[in-house]
């Protein structure tokens, strides 16, 4: 029975992946759709990374700092050293991770709201510093970034899609492995009760820092991918909205799970784009606000828990 279910699940995973690979071909090569899908993938990685940190009980309100640092560092290095973009993206991620550890160090002793404010503040500080370092970052003018796949190649957006899809799969598998490993269990224990975790012999500080580093690393990679897809980076990348989206996606999909942030990103993006085609403007934001409130109150485990809920209702009957 158990084995069966596992098999079904793996099967479904494989089908999902194949579908994701074939999607652009099935729906012809439509660049708008590809752009939506690419951004969806980028934010899937980003939300999953944010969620990884949240799993340790640390809810960041300033993840745009890592998103932007990844993008800026990768763009600057690829521009000035001529390294291939695939390499600089990883460097961008490492740089974000280093900053993440520094921010994490100030956060280890902090509780929920305090941590939220400090991370929020760090995004503002990082933006100010980026603008002031105008020799390197171009100030408010920003700097061009190499395209992931040069525009001269036909169907370059489709190649970008496949590259980003591959990276996204790798990133999510790594996050999955982390969450299922000893570290994942430790993070959950810390979230549930820090004191008890300490008593159980878990080194809380080290694990919190590890979570910060890993989360910042993957966020930096996501940011760098977005920047190299756009081909330009400006300080707007540190915007408050950029910090808030992964929270919206993760909360609506389902916190502290692997599938939650993915599901949330897909569903919310789909709703967003469909409503756009109806010409809806503020209504979309109102709807997002309502969805967030309703989910926090009535479906705290997110959309991903709906089947579970339905099953429990049926079982009761």
């Amino acid at each position: 029975m158990k084995l069966n279910r596992l098999n079904i699940k793996t099967g479904i995973d494989i089908v999902t992946l194949i579908l994701a690979f074939l999607l652009p071909l099935i729906l012809e090569v439509n660049q708008y759709l590809l752009t939506v899908l690419i951004l969806m993938l980028v934010f899937t990685m980003y939300s999953s990374a944010w969620n990884l940190l949240a799993t340790s009980g640390q809810g960041s309100l300033g993840h745009a700092a890592f998103f932007g640092i990844g993008g800026y560092v990768s763009a600057i290095i690829s521009n000035s050293f001529g390294l291939p973009v695939i390499v600089t993206i990883v460097i961008g991620g490492f740089f974000a991770a280093v900053i993440g550890v520094l921010i994490g160090l100030t956060c280890v002793r902090l509780k929920a709201w305090f941590l939220a404010m400090v991370t929020f503040g760090f995004a503002i500080i990082v933006q100010t510093v980026t603008v002031e370092l105008s020799g390197l970052t171009g100030g408010w003018d920003g700097i061009p970034a190499k395209k992931l796949v040069p525009v001269t190649i036909t169907n370059h957006v489709m190649y970008e899609y496949y590259i980003i899809l591959l990276i996204a799969v790798v990133v999510i598998v790594i996050i999955y492995l982390i969450m299922k490993s000893k570290m994942g269990l430790a993070l959950e224990a810390i979230r549930e009760n820090e004191l008890e975790a300490k008593v159980m012999g878990i080194n809380v500080t080290v694990y919190k820092l590890k979570a910060f580093a890993a989360s910042a690393f993957f966020t930096g990679i996501a940011g760098a991918l977005e920047i190299h897809h756009f081909g330009y980076v400006t300080p707007e990348v540190y915007g408050i909205d950029i910090s808030f989206w992964p929270i919206i996606y993760s909360v609506s999909g389902g916190l502290y799970t692997i599938g939650g942030p993915i599901l949330g990103t897909v569903v919310i993006t789909a709703i967003w784009e469909v409503l756009r085609s109806f010409g809806m403007t503020y209504g979309r934001f109102i709807l997002i606000g309502l969805i967030l409130i309703l989910i926090v109150i009535f479906l705290p485990k997110g959309l991903i828990s709906i089947p579970e809920k339905i099953r429990s209702i049926f079982l009761k009957n």
Partner: peptide, 18 residues
Amino acid sequence: KLNEIFLSLGLIYLFQNL
């Protein structure tokens, strides 16, 4: 505690856009 933060976020979007 995190739920309050998420809920407030929803309220911000709701009130600003209303």
